[in-house]
Design a binder for these strands. Sequence first.
DNA 1: GGGCATAGGGATAAATTTGTCCCTATCTGA
DNA 2: TCAGATAGGGACAAATTTATCCCTATGCCC
Lengths: 125, 125
Amino acid sequence: MYERKIAPNLNCGLDLIGEVLYGKWKIRLLWFIHIGHQRPSELQRKIPDASRRVLNVQLKELEDHELITRKVYPVVPPKVEYSLTEFGKTVIPVIAALGEWGDKNEERLRTVILRELEKPQLGEN
Amino acid sequence: MYERKIAPNLNCGLDLIGEVLYGKWKIRLLWFIHIGHQRPSELQRKIPDASRRVLNVQLKELEDHELITRKVYPVVPPKVEYSLTEFGKTVIPVIAALGEWGDKNEERLRTVILRELEKPQLGEN
DNA sequence: GGGCATAGGGATAAATTTGTCCCTATCTGA
DNA sequence: TCAGATAGGGACAAATTTATCCCTATGCCC
């Protein structure tokens, strides 16, 4: 496992929430679990751009940070279900606010984002 | 300048907002500009853990994404002031929600975050 | 002049995150 | 028996982000 060489900043609320939500797929994972997709294979199908490996890693971190719980059913084939903890549920409105802002401004965001992606080779000196 | 090799996902609002806010210092920059620290040197003093270089890069991206504007005063020594655009102002409540959640749960977050940092060498098998 | 503050950029290195590949294990169904 | 679904981990590579170092330029102050 990777071991940090630089300590994180934990000065303010923004630093703290960043430590637990910052991760390419974490917010999506929380959201999908929230709306009822609780099994790893389901989540992987919902987020096909993420590799299984990374989803597992990020799920583990969410679990370590007490935002979700992992319940293992002693059956074969294995069955695992993730659920939001009470603590995890409290962060859902914040994620919803993020998503709403993104949706509301979809067109504009798409424009400014794609503009940067499409002409990186033209210097603007 | 770094050129992406993998296209970003722009499927939903969460992807879109991620493209413009994802960056170690971006949220902090927006916040500090919001509360009145508008000059680069001021921002650098407010965020001493970030290198000047990276703050400049991230400010440039925020500007490209139309969240802030950069006003240059033709004086010597140089003077530059960043301001939120109208668009940028609309994201402030979302950032505030993030910060509030972090502040409200400060103690718990600090606990779970530090727990992971402090015993990475003890296997849990 | 020398040093500091202002603002910023290029080249490159380091840190961190994310992805790929391959392996384990069990039961079901063809 | 062999393939596929289930869940997951180790080793390693690639991508991406962030930091470091050094450079430019001007005016002020001592």
